[in-house]
Design a protein around this nucleic acid. Structure first.
Ligand SMILES: [Mn+2]
Ligand SMILES: [Mn+2]
Ligand SMILES: [Mn+2]
Ligand SMILES: [Mn+2]
Lengths: 216, 216
DNA sequence: CAATATTTTTAGATTTGTCTAAATTATTTT
DNA sequence: AAAATAATTTAGACAAATCTAAAAATATTG
């Protein structure tokens, strides 16, 4: 099987970029991966060839790469571990939501199926992490039944509960915190307008109440 | 500073072997380290030279190596992390004492001062790990005020509480468990005789009560 | 649609950490 | 004390993961 921190990081990048590019069939360019990982393009090319050897990715020269089913399974397990550890750090150790990403980047590579299962159970099988990102279960399935709305979808009279932040970047999360934004806090349409535009647009909310008569 | 899993493992081996050979001034041979780490002697020689460059060890060719003050500080921090994580795994996640060593071998390399401090606090600043090994504090000091006795020191009528196991080897720990031995369990002199010799001699006990009139 | 610009891969070098085989130093025996 | 034995280091090779510079393929554009 031959996992390594670097190989796993490349698989994770391939997964994340593939998702943002329209699902598992999308080809991800080696340059995009290089940018995302902070390495140079030739390093990615050679790593992607290794991932192909290992059966985790498919590489079409000059087209890009995408995950195989096995690679996707590995990626989802890494996402699961990352988000469970982030939850542990915030819920149990009292870290702020802006502090946990870098530590979780390390913890996600710890290799023990039993540890992940126990951690999940210990945390009460959380559905989302401290940034509102859904946590896949042991089979790689998301159980996310929230209906998330962009702040710009709310109209006067609506109240929304902060359910997720789109980017998990420490600077952004700190700023949000300093404006009183935390997961679960409730905001009226008007209160939301009081937030700087670039902060507000990173939020996703669940509608708590509205004056409109909406279709189900 | 340039830490790496391998460098840290060599520092830890140097610490452990140095202690068992009579303290921080003892010279540890590269062969001993090679055995302990499961690598070949030339690999150790070259790593020890790197550790010297980094200021963590001193290497006298054909004599051996020993830690500098900085190296010792690093080693104690690794021991601290290892034992805190073992404690977390047993106390919070419900692992058995025979299951945690290998996972802690990975977790001890996670690099975050704040994480270690928070974990320590979360666990209630434990003094010993699940095997009864003392946990150094943030300054590298052991606060171990137990007086540990070998089973062979107990005489008829004495009762001892299991306080530590000398080796933390999964097979031994499983066997002990199957004989009802766990940290904190109390054993009379007679009950101890019922244990196989090679298991019994790995135990360290605190005297709970005795019939003898002992000097303080 | 040919020339140019951009993207991607290949080629070859570098660092880290490991190995085996050979040379060197230290220790033990006769 | 010389010879034999054992321990340790050096020399040179290799795999993993990265880099820069050059070559090749693709995309853009006049
Ligand atoms: Mn994260
Ligand atoms: Mn997250
Ligand atoms: Mn251990
Ligand atoms: Mn232990």
């Amino acid at each position: 099987m031959a996992k390594s921190k670097q190989r796993e990081d490349h698989v994770k990048a391939l997964y994340a970029l593939g998702e943002s590019l329209g699902g598992p069939k999308a080809w991800v360019s080696t340059n995009q991966m290089a940018d995302h990982l902070g390495v140079k393009a030739p390093s990615v090319t050679s790593m992607v060839q290794v991932l192909q050897e290992l059966g985790w990715a498919e590489h079409r020269p000059y087209r890009g790469a995408r995950l195989t089913v096995a690679g996707r399974r590995l990626a989802l397990n890494l996402v699961r571990k990352h988000r469970l550890w982030e939850t542990f750090l915030v819920e149990r150790l009292g870290f702020g939501w802006e502090e946990v990403h870098d530590i979780a980047e390390q913890l996600e590579h710890i290799d023990s199926v039993k540890l992940v299962d126990r951690l999940d159970e210990y945390l009460g099988c959380p559905k989302v992490d401290p940034h509102g990102d859904p946590i896949p279960d042991g089979k790689g399935l998301f159980n996310d039944d929230r209906s998330l709305r962009s702040p710009s979808d709310l109209v006067a009279g609506d109240v929304g509960r902060v359910a997720a932040v789109q980017r998990d970047d420490a600077a952004l999360l700190s700023l949000l915190k300093s404006h009183g934004v935390a997961l679960g806090t409730e905001w009226t349409h008007e209160a939301l307008q009081g937030l700087p535009h670039d902060l507000r647009e990173q939020l996703l909310l669940e509608l708590v109440s509205t004056m409109k008569h909406g279709a189900s």
